[in-house]
Nucleic acid binder design. Structure first.
Lengths: 220, 220
DNA sequence: CTATTTGAACTGACTGGTCAGTTCAGTTAG
DNA sequence: CTAACTGAACTGACCAGTCAGTTCAAATAG
């Protein structure tokens, strides 16, 4: 395997965290390639067979590294999965936020956000599967992680709903929290269903179906 | 596959409930009790920790029977789970169908169906967790089972949507299939979220949030 | 410029343990 | 009598985590 030490400027791509060591400025950190490969491999395998159904050996083999490397980069299988969840949510959040301020009609902005979510589900279906598989387990090893990440995602959706509510008259019988959840959940499920059972369904059809909630929320 | 000399236990598929079954020539009462206990125990455990995370020994212990009994009643762990899925869907379907013909306003009927779904999720949250955990895995041991059961459920929802579309003017840009999926998914996710993260949310709030899709589907 | 050192990254055999599924002689209850 | 169930032993596979050893580019010394 060729580990080219200079294949990128260190930490320029902006997706991974800055690895947090404050003091040492020499010693180039060429770590990310391996972690990235492990993220991709585990995302795929865990999405297919579930967190408990995949072995660390398989993940290592799929990433083209040895088992020890997994434990060198992550403290445990559980740790790997927790970081995987954060990694995926960071990507999704970045996409949702890229929309947030580009539009003046809040309903259109909402539609674009849902479209971004559909794209994300199509691109990372394994992440979506991992999420729905583990999100509601109690007690779960990743309960705190989920609570935090879920909160971050719902906050973004909630802000978009608030944007709509600020401009349009909305149905007071529908609580914002429940609507957030319904839209959030519908994004995952519609995205996954499209990938698993209805590949012929278009992005626009899916967005339109989820947006029906918003149009029903707005009092015409 | 089935090499167990005893695997012809009591009925291996049509086990939904004792009612309406005419021709059981053997003891029906005792049989169902054990299977029922095994269903309940596995539902609980598998909902908490996932199908792969639960051992047959645990299921047997939780049901208060021996491991051999599990293999006497079901040929395998996989078989147990397949029957568990059918069992749960039968219950949910029965509830949805109990609504279907009792109302004359199709929108109200839809709301009642969603309410029934909420009740089901509250009563069998572990089933809901099992469903969302395994439904979108590919390839999966229960892929065929899921495809069939999903079809049965979506047909009922689809019929309710058709009922609405027959009376109200509806948005032609929203495909029935996608809307079915969105509502179906929202039911699971809103129900699970209510149980896991927002126990204070009322049934009515949840129904209203999901029903927003239908009100948005209808052209006013 | 060359030689040596350092240590982060990585390796893979090994350990101690778990689990699904099998088997079967014996027990209970309809 | 017989179907349903028990309980314990057994097998063969599988697996998370460990650790002593290897590699090699960068740092440092000569």
């Amino acid at each position: 395997m060729s580990n080219s030490p200079l294949d990128r400027g260190p930490g320029s791509s902006g997706d991974a965290d800055s690895a947090g060591d404050a003091g040492k400025r020499l010693r180039p950190a060429r770590t990310n390639a391996t972690k990235q490969k492990l993220f991709e491999a585990s995302m795929e395998l865990i999405g297919e067979r579930g967190a408990a159904g995949v072995t660390v050996d398989e993940i290592a083999a799929a990433a083209g590294v040895s088992k020890g490397t997994v434990y060198y980069n992550f403290g445990s299988k559980s740790d790997l999965i927790a970081q995987l969840l954060r990694h995926g949510v960071d990507i999704l959040l970045a996409r949702l936020l890229s929309v947030k301020d580009t539009s003046d009609d809040p309903l259109a902005a909402m539609g674009e956000m849902i479209g971004q979510a559909m794209d994300f589900m199509a691109e990372y279906p394994s992440f979506a599967r991992l999420w729905v598989s583990e999100n509601w387990r109690t007690p779960s090893e990743w309960q705190d992680t989920f609570t935090e990440l879920r909160g971050r995602l719902l906050a973004v959706i909630g802000a978009a709903i608030d944007g709509v509510a600020a401009v349009y008259r909305v149905d007071p019988a529908v609580s914002r929290g429940s609507l957030e959840t319904a839209i959030f959940g519908a994004c995952f499920v519609v995205g996954l269903d499209r990938q698993t059972y209805n590949p012929e369904r278009t992005r626009e059809q899916s967005v339109a179906a989820i947006m029906a909630s918003m149009r029903g929320y707005v009092v015409k």
